[in-house]
Design a protein around this nucleic acid. Sequence first.
DNA 1: TTCAAGTTGTGAATTTATTATCAAAAATTT
DNA 2: AAATTTTTGATAATAAATTCACAACTTGAA
Lengths: 214, 214
Amino acid sequence: MKNQNPVPKATLQRYPVYLKALRKLQKNGVSKIMSRELSSFVDIEPTTIRRDFSFLGSLGKQGYGYDVDKLIEIFNSELGVDFDEKIILVGAGNLGRALLNYNKWDYVVGEITCAFDADPAKAGNVFGIDVYTLDELEEKIPNGCRIAILTISDDVQNTVDRLIRNGITGIVDFTHQHFQVPHGVAVKAVDVVSSIQELVFTTNSMNSTTAMKQ
Amino acid sequence: MKNQNPVPKATLQRYPVYLKALRKLQKNGVSKIMSRELSSFVDIEPTTIRRDFSFLGSLGKQGYGYDVDKLIEIFNSELGVDFDEKIILVGAGNLGRALLNYNKWDYVVGEITCAFDADPAKAGNVFGIDVYTLDELEEKIPNGCRIAILTISDDVQNTVDRLIRNGITGIVDFTHQHFQVPHGVAVKAVDVVSSIQELVFTTNSMNSTTAMKQ
DNA sequence: TTCAAGTTGTGAATTTATTATCAAAAATTT
DNA sequence: AAATTTTTGATAATAAATTCACAACTTGAA
């Protein structure tokens, strides 16, 4: 990875969007794409796309465009999105179980390796994945595991602290609750409520600015 | 709503974070909060917090801070996060059902009014919410409904187009698939895969910049 | 081979977002 | 009641992100 100039946060947030779109293009047999074409696809300006890509090297050819396969390969290898990524699920309630069933992730990123739940009654094997009690966390957490998906609703802060003590540095947060993490740990909230709120905020503010323009 | 200066996009994305934290404070009996205190809670600079709040008026008092109840009330009323908000769910598979069960949303935002699924076998009543076949969309979609939660995996683009034709302007997207929407429609991806990717990207890039500093 | 058309990648310009600074105001202490 | 402390809200300064504009290069046609 080019460390000279660190990749901007805003760019980092767009990479998954590109990957998703590129994968769809690949599936449709598209082998080459130009920034302008991709732009209409993902609704991001061509210049922004080109700059975003340029952080990973000179991936395109002038007068030609970008090779879709190559782009996807670069994203996977340079940025460490890999099947090696071990992921655990914490909380095997309704939502947790739905995610376990869902676990193929389009074969894009590593799968959930195992799961934990405070309730011993939830332990066992769900959709082929071992579910342990939370007591067994220290014992059963896979070596080198960095990412945890959090779908619990009780004792959130304590559980988070414990996960971090056991090497977790990234949390996909499905809880509706607020918690704190030390620096160096990244949290990505995947929260229906917040999403709805943000949508409402955005659509309201879109409406009012549109109203002003008229 | 103050329309003079439109609320910045970045601010809009932080409002749900504030709301979540404020609600937790309220639950814990905290009635007053200062920007500095809130800052350590949500990991956003005090100045940023004060600026963000100031778009909604002069909500604080010098030398005192902010009233938690008042803040929450303002967020709810000024920004239209409301129980009146009608939400539909499209796709009643495993994930969709988990969301239906989950549907109380901490009593923070309107609930799912009804759901739709292409498969007639999925129709019926799930956790007290009516599930119709997708054929019945035009007939059964609630009046004034703007927000749809999308948990389908097939025929995504067509379904999205159809939702938009029926007045949907905001989509909470749980699919793993890419689709396009016209301007004026907001999409908020709530995508486990993208979230994991972003986390991996972020943690990787945090590690490499940390390494540089040493 | 040469020319025309088209596209990338990057410095420069612009816009957007964040942070520093401080006057004004509220609360608390003396 | 005056003085001190504290905290907001706004203006100014800085930083980050986006967009413009164009040289450098590629392709395909003449």
